[in-house]
Design a protein around this nucleic acid. Structure first.
Lengths: 205, 205, 205, 205
DNA sequence: AATGAATGAGCCTTCATTCAT
DNA sequence: CATGAATGAAGGCTCATTCAT
């Protein structure tokens, strides 16, 4: 109940408005009662972020690649490409459809007190974030990209997603008369062109 | 004086710590006096962002492309590429070296009350932001990219920069064992490969 | 007004009850208004103690020794004795009649945060306390007691007063079926017997 | 276990810091469990004070007077003096070495709610305090002081001890450049000089 | 233009205590 | 006997803002 209240407060009011009082009120509690469950406000936020990352992972995990026919190396390459598209898009979509989750992540990673974000918790949360990008990274490896480059590509992809969504959520993207979805699709196309060009052409012949 | 005080408070204390009281103290005023110059705290921030964008434009304007020798179409292309590199890098560097300016922009564009960010001011600020990206966009056009594609590329570049810097400032980039500068350089290389590939090779022969 | 409110709150409710909220309410203010005058609750208490020590000094200063007739060394000794009685009794009476002032002193000297009791303020308050005992100490010196012994005697006198009053205010003195005033008078008699015995006898002959 | 926990919490954290929560935590309980043993926090403190007074009595009881040789009235006087010194000093030392016990006594006697300090408990605690002073009082009687005067002297002695220790614990005694032990010794000397002067001299001849 | 006092709402947190289980 | 959740009140303090002067 506390987490649900925190989530709803956060969704409707943003980080500034989601005070402990407000969260308690929404949970039907007095402020002090929250401290039976969490030892500080930052810990509530930490739990909220943890939960958000679980939902992200569930979303990415549920994304199904398009079916690919055939056998052999070429088919495997096409399967990896389909997987990459599906998983990366799921990641992008999760945050595009739920801007607050992005806020949450960055607020917490950015401004949280040590009290709320212990190194252990920090590492746990980081790990779950990496988990959500792992299928994409794995698909790159299957496409023949070496481990280091795959890591770089995934980081760049993550940064691109974050940047696009931030521009989108703050309305800045409109000033360029662009749309985040289209830009994301293009980025993905280029990523695939970069990482799987030869096989694609071979299979295309 | 007020703006200088606000800038210094904001630089040292960040958004949370830069209260009106603090700004007033640094300006040698009492809190009430600020309201002779600005009608709200958000307006102070608005002015600060305006000023930040001026500095951004000055920084980008001052960036000199590498010298290019020769004449004709090939040289013009190389000049445009050098310009693109110089201007985009200047943009990136400005925010990389001054994370607070990035914070400021996003705080204002994100959370500000209507009171602080009037449509007129919003459009002014947007215009200055576009100005800072205009040289890059122009270079793309000179490379033969059509107007619409140049706009898309610049928007994507901006998003990429924002994403990289956000990851960098929140320390998230470390969890991928990457570094924003290297990722930016690579993005730029790919952008150029995408937009000026044939001419480059031709001139190379 | 704030100080008056703080004093009255403190008088009626003691240290625990004299919260900032309560003080503000009594002053006809909202809690925040107190911070226009004092930068912390402890500072309010510090000011209260300062004021209390001023009243103590005024009380001691106003105490008139009994008139002494005659001339010469013997008369001067009797005058010094009368002064010692008058000043020491004034000190004792001040705190006997105003137990809260004693509480205040000990609370502040004991439990106050560094924020409220700066070394400078601490020294100022100590100085005023010493001032209130100075006439007694001076009378001892006039009785021929050397400086070091006079200091010891005054310290012991102060401790005795504090002890008697504490026993008295906590009701413990009743358990011995004693009364603080009588015990104080006896202590004073013995102090005088100790410090001015010979001259007294000589003048008595 | 609860009492031990309360004692340790109180020793380390003082009155302010020794909350019921803290006590419960140290006892390995949850806060509510304390109420199976005590009906309020004040009652815990009451029990703590009772225990403290037991330790005081044990300490005083264990104090051995210096051995005195000889027979007759003079020897008995010297024995009584030795006893007085030993017992009074034990009392003083107990609180000098354990300031928290003094705090405890005054907190309870001073600020406690009726709930915590019932008349019955109050009388029990008083009785144990008197017990700790009884050997000193008895020694005075053996020195020939009449009952009433002995009672007064013991009360004054107690007050003096309390005053000295309070000055000492609050650091005020330093401002007079004095030291509580020396002042206590002097007080004891004077007490003995006052109460056993002639016999002492006679036996000295 | 500037002050300084004041507001009112709000912040997170702690506390002793209660009570159904 | 003990838990654990919950209360209700209070704690000190900060904030942007207002406004008479």
């Amino acid at each position: 109940m506390v987490l649900a209240a925190a989530r709803s407060a956060f969704l409707e009011l943003g980080l500034e408005g989601a005070s402990l009082r407000e969260i308690a009120k929404r949970a039907g509690y007095t402020p002090g009662a929250i401290y039976s469950y969490f030892s500080s406000k930052e810990e509530v936020y930490g739990a909220l972020l943890g939960e958000s990352l679980e939902r992200l992972n569930a979303h990415v995990g549920a994304a199904e690649p398009a079916l690919v026919s055939g056998h052999g190396a070429a088919a495997r390459s096409r399967a990896a490409q389909a997987t990459l598209r599906a998983k990366a898009t799921a990641f992008f979509d999760f945050y595009r459809e739920s801007p607050r989750d992005l806020d949450l992540g960055f607020y917490l990673f950015h401004g949280m007190q040590p009290r709320g974000l212990t190194p252990v918790l920090n590492e746990q949360l980081n790990a779950r974030l990496r988990d959500a990008l792992a299928p994409t990274q794995q698909a790159l490896v299957e496409l023949g990209v070496d481990a280091g480059a795959a890591q770089s590509e995934v980081t760049a992809l993550f940064a691109h997603i974050v940047g696009l969504l931030l521009l989108s959520h703050t309305g800045r993207i409109r000033m360029f008369r662009q749309e985040s979805q289209a830009l994301f699709d293009r980025y993905l196309d280029e990523l695939l062109a970069r990482c799987a060009p030869r096989r694609v052409r071979r299979t295309a012949h």
